[in-house]
Design a protein around this nucleic acid. Structure first.
Length: 472
RNA sequence: GCCGGGGUGGCCGAACGGUUCAGGCGGCUGCCUGCAGAGCAGCUAUAUGUGGGUUCAACUCCCACCCCCGGCUCCA
């Protein structure tokens, strides 16, 4: 574990706080996941990548992380979607859930320990709703739905810093649409109506389906306990979603629900809010289909501090790709290095970069500063290699360090040194060398182009010709 | 209307009351190279939305204004 401590910005207090987990050395985190009604878009992934970075940083620091990411597979959008396609809710959400898991892998997100689905936790939700009714926090509305009476929860608004009284005149509050007593109350359990079709559960509290917020309270407590260390999601979830989760959970248990609340800012695309009507709405698949490298996308989403709005542009994506290439090229070069050795200097540089990287990340995941430290290091070590002053053994140490950093960043990946060169490529390289010896540059360049077509990249260096296979 | 966040070089993006404005990307020049690639070195004019103020010193603090983004029960 790193000696210095992790500082995180807690939305609850609106200040940076030292992270002290409930249980020494363990971090229990709940990260709000996707509603599986469509392919997730890059805005969603900005948040998921942030949550991944958080998780990886905690692990780097030696914490045993238990992460829960919920899967919302029953709500208005999923029900409507399934109905449009005339398939069951499960069939519909399974499809998008599978796609989500594929996307997670594409973006190199570490797997959470649990991905609970709302529909698989109905009994637990029902019992939480019952508990809230027994304690007098919930009531049944005229329509048969069960609502949470926010006036009963004295701390309502503590996360979003909204005052109940000021919620009322809000322009977007639809009054009297349902059978709630107060427009601001929210549904714990929605009574079945004909638009729900076959989607309902017959339970002790009636025929219907759960409200949105109850799943998170229920599943967080089931897998992580009544008080969790960190809860996170996009800023848009602060209100009402997270506020309501607090109200439900804390009313039921009388205990603090989550100690640290972390929220990531939104992503803009070309300076604008991402929306289908602006034509700037992208899923991960849209981008990979255009040929963009997932590692570059990950880097771009990662490289801006999570509490800063991130402006996603194709120019930026191009830049991200080049930055990732620089790290990759550097790391690969380490494997081929066999110089004289520089002794103390490399140790000093390694100590320095680790110190800077860790200090930056510990400060509320200040990734920009951490990356700056990393790139400084890359430049310094490149210079050592240029001067033939890095030994094989030293290069191996640096390579291990790069892998350690990449365990956090997830953009470089391992290099396989013993990739097989196809025999025909080997033959071409031999021919090209002959041509070069004879200073027949035309033939040499032709063969180089030919190899490139085959996906074999040739580089002439003072140490002889080097090749690598570039998969596409 | 109420409440937040932000405006930094060609682009992205840190920092902070005071050493060179970090780092990345792009462009240019040089070194290396048959060329290319990679790398290194240097350059990219007086950067911090505007106008005031505080201070020996402000991008950093204060005031006003302009603009952008967001929250105020769909939303990552």
């Amino acid at each position: 574990m790193t000696k210095s401590e992790i500082i995180l910005f807690n939305t609850l207090t609106r200040r940076k706080e030292k992270f002290v987990p409930l249980k020494n050395g363990e971090a229990k985190i709940y990260t709000c996941g996707p509603t599986v009604y469509d392919f997730a878009h890059i805005g969603n992934f900005r948040t998921f990548v942030f949550q991944d970075l958080l998780r990886r940083w905690l692990e780097y620091c030696g914490f045993k992380v238990t992460q829960v990411m919920n899967i919302t597979d029953v709500d208005d959008k999923t029900i409507i979607g399934a109905r449009k396609r005339q398939i069951s809710l499960k069939e519909y959400t399974d499809y998008y859930l599978k796609a989500f898991f594929e996307d997670i892998e594409t973006l190199n997100l570490e797997k959470a320990e649990f991905y609970p689905r709302a529909t698989e936790h109905i009994p637990e939700m029902v019992s939480l709703v019952k508990r809230l009714m027994e304690k007098g926090y919930a009531y049944r509305g005229e329509d048969g739905s069960i609502y949470y009476d926010i006036s009963k929860f004295k701390n309502y608004g503590k996360l979003s810093k909204l005052k109940i009284e000021e919620l009322k005149p809000g322009a977007r509050v639809k009054v009297d649409e349902y059978g709630k007593e107060e427009a601001r109350d929210f549904a714990l359990w929605k009574a079945w109506d004909k638009d729900d079709g076959e989607v309902f559960w017959d339970t002790e509290i009636g025929k219907g389906r759960p409200g949105w917020h109850i799943e998170c309270s229920t599943m967080a407590m089931k897998y992580l306990g009544e008080t969790i260390d960190i809860h996170s999601g996009g800023v848009d979830l602060i209100f009402p979603h997270h506020e309501n989760e607090i109200a439900q959970s804390e009313a039921a248990t009388g205990k603090e629900f989550a100690r640290y609340w972390l929220h990531s800012e939104h992503l803009l695309v070309e300076g604008k809010r991402m929306a289908k009507r602006y034509g700037n709405f992208y899923t991960l698949r849209d981008l990979t289909a255009k040929g963009y490298d997932p590692k570059a996308i990950r880097y771009l989403l990662l490289s801006t501090h999570y509490r800063q709005q991130l402006n996603f542009t194709f120019e930026g994506l191009e830049a991200a790709k080049n930055a990732v290439d620089r790290l990759k090229t550097f790391t690969r070069r380490l494997l081929e290095t066999d110089g004289k050795g520089c002794g103390e200097e490399i140790r000093r540089l390694m100590t320095e970069v680790q110190r800077r990287f860790e200090e930056a990340m510990n400060d509320d995941l200040n990734i920009s500063v951490a990356l700056a430290a990393l790139f400084d290091f890359v430049r310094d070590v490149n210079r050592l290699m240029d001067e033939n002053r890095l030994s094989k053994q030293e290069a191996e140490m640096v390579y291990s360090l790069m892998m350690k950093f990449d365990k956090v960043l997830g953009v470089v990946g391992e290099f396989k040194t013993e990739e097989k060169l196809p025999t025909e490529a080997a033959e071409l390289i031999r021919k090209r060398e002959e041509a070069r010896k004879a200073k027949d540059w035309v033939t040499a360049d032709k063969i180089r182009a030919q190899l490139r077509e085959m996906g074999v990249i040739i580089e002439d260096t003072p140490q002889g010709v080097k090749w690598r296979i570039e998969k596409r």
